[in-house]
Design a protein around this nucleic acid. Structure first.
Lengths: 217, 217
DNA sequence: ACTAACTTGAACATGCCTGTTCGGGTTAAA
DNA sequence: TTTAACCCGAACAGGCATGTTCAAGTTAGT
């Protein structure tokens, strides 16, 4: 279902699509998809259960058209999530994760913070409407990134080895999201958040008996 | 509205209630309220958006009766939240929070863990259906408990002083909830969770330059 | 026995959201 | 100009949840 978008009239189209010149025939479609996704991100960022009708209206597009591209609400949310995560992943690709694991983590937090903070509510919507396993799968690459750094830190002896690695990863994500909530509620200075998160995480990841490092901006 | 429960027939009753013997006239009502609350906790613990109808059925009570006591769904959720928090508060009252702040925190985490773990989903439901300010108000006493310990720790020089206190409190709650989620998802050993949370928190609350303490069971 | 307090299932009114269908546009390639 | 591919608003169908109302019990005090 998700893979067979159809026009409002209900004509089939995937088969004929093979011809080369047709690929450019209607670039509008892709433009529409883009605006829908944009609008969806925008609305879902404010209200995790904005209706499909609202999203269509905000996208300046008919509800029917929307359903033409995303045959179900879950499809739409999934697409939004995927795009968001992909963007995030691209941003994170530009972040240097080599060198001292502590500094690498600090840099990663700095880069991630903006994203998490911005798309907090989208993630929330996805979490509520998509199967948990799907969320996991989409997050996999980002998750692995954190895991790698933690791993390196453990082997280098600068991160603690006495707790399950999975848990440490959870701690990283959990604090980011908590900060995002607090920031949205006005209880935490948004501009200072990255520093605060990093400082907390570095301490949390330090092994008992070791000395907590200071953060460098 | 919330303060004027009425029978299904719609007869007024609050005024006549003043007479002494009438207080015991119908203890069923209170028994019913109790079963409703019990059932609500039970269902909401599994599914944060169980319907009122489901809850009534699980309580072995007519839907109308339920609406007689809680005139709206929000009312019910609020009552459930209040009762849960009150129970939690009572449990926490029995916990010794004197002495070394680090040990006090460890004990508090141990006592809280069971509660958070058990009522995770209830909290989630409340968070979604009640105004944020109300949640704050209800949580106030528990929150203050944590805050007090952190405060004492800071003054004693064993907890960090370089981050906002509000944030440190957030960290405590955030890690508890994250652990509850992980535990529910099977990614974290429930019996070991309290220790892991405490170990993480102690490290996170340690000041840069200081040495991370080891946990004692 | 009488009655007030309380309970009940059935049924109704509303409202909101999802997903579909219809009939009629628009645009650009052929 | 024809036509395929796409777009639109309006309107319908169905579901599910919240509250309300009704007419008929039940139970415990008096």
């Amino acid at each position: 279902m998700a893979a067979t978008p159809r026009g409002a009239g209900g004509r089939p189209r995937s088969a004929q699509r093979a011809a080369a010149p047709l690929m450019e025939r209607r670039a509008d479609a892709r433009r529409n998809i883009a605006s829908i996704l944009d609008a969806a991100v925008l609305l879902l960022s404010c209200d995790a259960d904005a209706s499909v009708a609202d999203i269509a209206k905000a996208a300046g597009v008919g509800r029917v058209t929307l359903y033409g591209h995303f045959s179900t609400r879950a499809d739409l949310v999934d697409a939004v999530l995927t795009r968001t995560v992909e963007q995030a992943d691209a941003t994170l690709d530009a972040t240097d994760t080599a060198g001292d694991p502590r500094q690498a983590l600090t840099r990663l937090v700095g880069a991630s913070w903006q994203i998490v903070h911005q798309f907090r509510s989208v993630l929330q919507a996805a979490q509520r409407e998509l199967p948990a396993e799907r969320i996991r799968a989409v997050h996999d690459r980002i998750l692995r990134r954190v895991q790698t750094i933690i791993d390196r830190g453990r082997q280098a002896g600068v991160f603690r080895d006495d707790l399950p690695e999975e848990w440490l990863v959870t701690v990283v994500f959990s604090l980011m999201h908590a900060a995002a909530e607090d920031s949205a509620a006005g209880a935490l200075d948004t501009d200072d958040a990255a520093r605060i998160i990093a400082a907390t995480l570095l301490a949390a990841l330090t092994a008992p008996g070791a000395t907590v490092p200071t953060v460098n901006p």
